[in-house]
Simulated scan of single mutants.
Amino acid sequence: MLNVCITGINGFIGRYILKELYRCNDINIIGIGRKCNYEGEEDIQYIQADIGSSGFVDSVSNQLDCIDVIIHLAAHISFDNDEELIRTNIAGTLHICELANKMNVEQLVYMSSIPVIGMPLVLPITEEHPTNPMTLYHSSKLAGENIVNNCCNADMVKTIVRISSPIGGGMCTNTILSVFAKRSKMNEDITVLGMGTREQNYIDVRDISKGILQILKEKPQGIYNLCSHSSISNIELAELCIKQAESSSRIVCQGNDSQDEVKWRISIDKAKKTFGFYPVYEISETLKWILEEE
Rank of each mutant, 00 (worst) to 15 (best):
K35P: 04
S61Y: 03
N187I: 06
Y22M: 09
N256G: 07
H76A: 05
I70R: 03
V57T: 13
V148M: 12
Y38S: 06
E261C: 10
A245D: 06
V4W: 00
I27V: 15
Q200L: 13
G40C: 10
I71R: 00
Q254Y: 08
N187V: 06
G211E: 03
S267W: 04
V57F: 08
D260N: 14
C152E: 04
G255Y: 14
S184E: 04
R206P: 01
P130K: 00
C253T: 13
M134A: 12
G168T: 02
G169Q: 07
D204Y: 15
S267V: 15
E42L: 07
G168A: 06
E236D: 14
Y16L: 05
H129P: 06
D257A: 11
H229V: 04
I176C: 12
K270I: 09
L226I: 15
Q254K: 13
V69T: 10
E39H: 08
M1P: 05
L136H: 03
G92V: 14
I70W: 08
Q63N: 14
Y278E: 14
C36T: 12
L237P: 00
L99F: 08
I268Q: 01
G222A: 10
E20F: 02
G255E: 09
E294T: 09
C66A: 11
N234R: 11
E261V: 06
I215W: 04
T135F: 02
I283L: 15
I235Y: 04
T93F: 13
P130Y: 00
E285A: 08
I17V: 13
N174R: 10
D82W: 05
N62S: 15
T88E: 02
I160Q: 01
D50Q: 05
D260C: 11
E128F: 06
G168R: 00
Q221R: 11
D257P: 00
Y110Q: 04
T88D: 03
V122N: 08
E246P: 07
Y46K: 00
D269T: 14
I235T: 10
L85N: 00
V192M: 01
K219C: 09
V122H: 07
D65I: 07
I251C: 01
G118N: 03
N101D: 13
Y46V: 03
S140C: 12
L99R: 08
T286W: 08
I6S: 00
I27T: 08
N225H: 15
V157A: 12
K272V: 08
R23F: 04
S231A: 09
I283W: 03
L85H: 01
I235A: 07
C253Y: 10
R250I: 13
Q45H: 07
N234K: 09
Q244N: 08
I266S: 00
S184Q: 07
H229T: 06
S113L: 07
E128P: 05
N201V: 08
F277C: 04
K288Y: 15
K217Y: 05
A74L: 03
I160K: 00
A154C: 11
E246W: 10
I251S: 01
A154W: 06
P166D: 12
N104D: 14
F180N: 01
N149M: 14
S54F: 13
G40M: 03
V161G: 02
P279D: 09
L94A: 14
L193S: 09
D43G: 06
